[in-house]
Design a protein around this nucleic acid. Structure first.
Lengths: 127, 127
DNA sequence: CTAACGTGTAACCATAAGGTTACATTAAAG
DNA sequence: CTTTAATGTAACCTTATGGTTACACGTTAG
């Protein structure tokens, strides 16, 4: 972890609802087999295996063979590391200094700083 | 937030080192203009604007027009919400119940449970 | 008013994501 | 040993990502 590419991998892995659901399922039923996991989804088994490969590449899922089957486990470590990064990197702002920005986001009309002009016709805020 | 598509958007936005760096820059220099931000990167201004669009769609960046320029601001709220989700959803496991799985991940050789057979030639753990 | 500057838009390109079906491989059961 | 069941691989398709260059638009400065 701690490397940019690793972070890319973890965030990318988490950027799909099906993959997040896989983590939920594996959290609830550790040691689940590939086929059993796949049966929980509408898409094909191969599609599920591709998602699994992405989760494994990110370190979020680990596995071990068990006969002709394979047992899958959720691994929290990468999430913990990212969590640590976040809280340290943005801790100053979580403390409240960015309340100014927060209210800009919630009511996207008022200027975030005194010297800023009021928006006239742009109206382009984050979606 | 709280919606799956919103989470997709935030995670996807964070899944690129350039975009994370943009958030860092905007955290350090709130109100920065598009061109000034773009000058920090090797890629073209248009590429930077596309990244910005993704960050804005995720709600991680908000902006307001200022003359012929546009001021950009980092918005923590989506990250805070995802953070809350994480800590509540996985709090039980962060407490230590998954230590068994963690050690599987770190030394990817020992079986995570007694009834599991030892790996023979698979050697496929999460990369 | 005109020129220059900062942004936004359009069109295009290469590659990666996400999905499919069909086939190969390995291990357990009969 | 042959069949069946679980997983893995290959080839292919469609759409999204990330990037480019060229051009249009609105705003400030001469």
């Amino acid at each position: 972890m701690q490397d940019d590419r690793d972070m890319d991998a973890v965030f990318h892995a988490l950027a799909h609802a099906s993959r997040r659901r896989m983590l939920d399922i594996l959290t609830a039923r550790p040691g689940l087999a590939v086929g059993a996991l796949a049966s929980e989804f509408d898409v094909s088994r191969v599609a599920v295996m591709k998602h699994l490969a992405i989760l494994e590449a990110a370190g979020l899922v680990v596995s071990e063979p068990d006969g002709r089957s394979r047992r899958l486990y959720f691994n929290v470590v990468p999430i913990q590391m990212i969590h640590e990064r976040w809280t340290t990197q943005y801790s100053a702002y979580w403390a409240g200094q960015l309340t100014r920005i927060k209210y800009l986001a919630e009511s996207a009309t008022a200027p975030p700083s005194p010297q800023a002009k009021s928006r006239k016709k742009g109206e382009r805020d984050g979606s």
